[in-house]
């Protein structure tokens, strides 16, 4: 079992989806700094993805500072990385767009939409 949640879809490149899922897990606290990160082999096997795809994802995450490789310790979640506002927005972007389109399709106006959001937000708090 992997230590972060991911549900691969068939439309986006798998490596991008892994990168996004890991960032999301870090932002949400599912993964924390110092947590061990699965090896390329484990990642490839768990998700049934091409090893190169798995490698590409890990390389991108290391490159962006989300993960770090330590000699003898393998790969782990780094301590320095925090999603900036822009990145958080990008992580949410698609979902927000979908939500807004759905809301508009249902005929909600801005106030009604906000009210719905607020209710849902409070329920989870």
């Amino acid at each position: 079992m992997l230590t972060f949640s991911i549900q691969l879809n068939r439309t986006q490149p798998a490596s991008e989806q892994v990168v996004r899922a890991v960032k999301r897990a870090v932002v949400s606290g599912q993964l924390r700094s110092g947590d061990p990160f699965p090896s390329v082999r484990e990642l490839s096997r768990s998700l049934k993805i091409n090893p190169k795809t798995a490698h590409k994802s890990v390389a991108a995450l290391v490159d962006e500072g989300v993960l770090e490789t330590r000699p003898n310790l393998g790969t782990q979640v780094s301590s320095g990385w925090e999603a900036n506002q822009k990145e958080k927005a990008v992580l949410l972007n698609k979902d927000i767009q979908r939500l807004v389109v759905d809301a508009k399709l249902c005929g909600l106006d801005w106030k009604e939409f906000l009210k719905e959001l607020e209710t849902e937000w409070k329920e989870i708090e």
Binding site: V40, R41, R45, K48, P51
Partner: peptide
């Protein structure tokens, strides 16, 4: 199918 894929992925690493 999954067992076969796992073997294949192991080989290809």
């Amino acid at each position: 199918r999954e067992e076969c894929i796992d073997g294949l992925l192991d080989w290809s690493q």
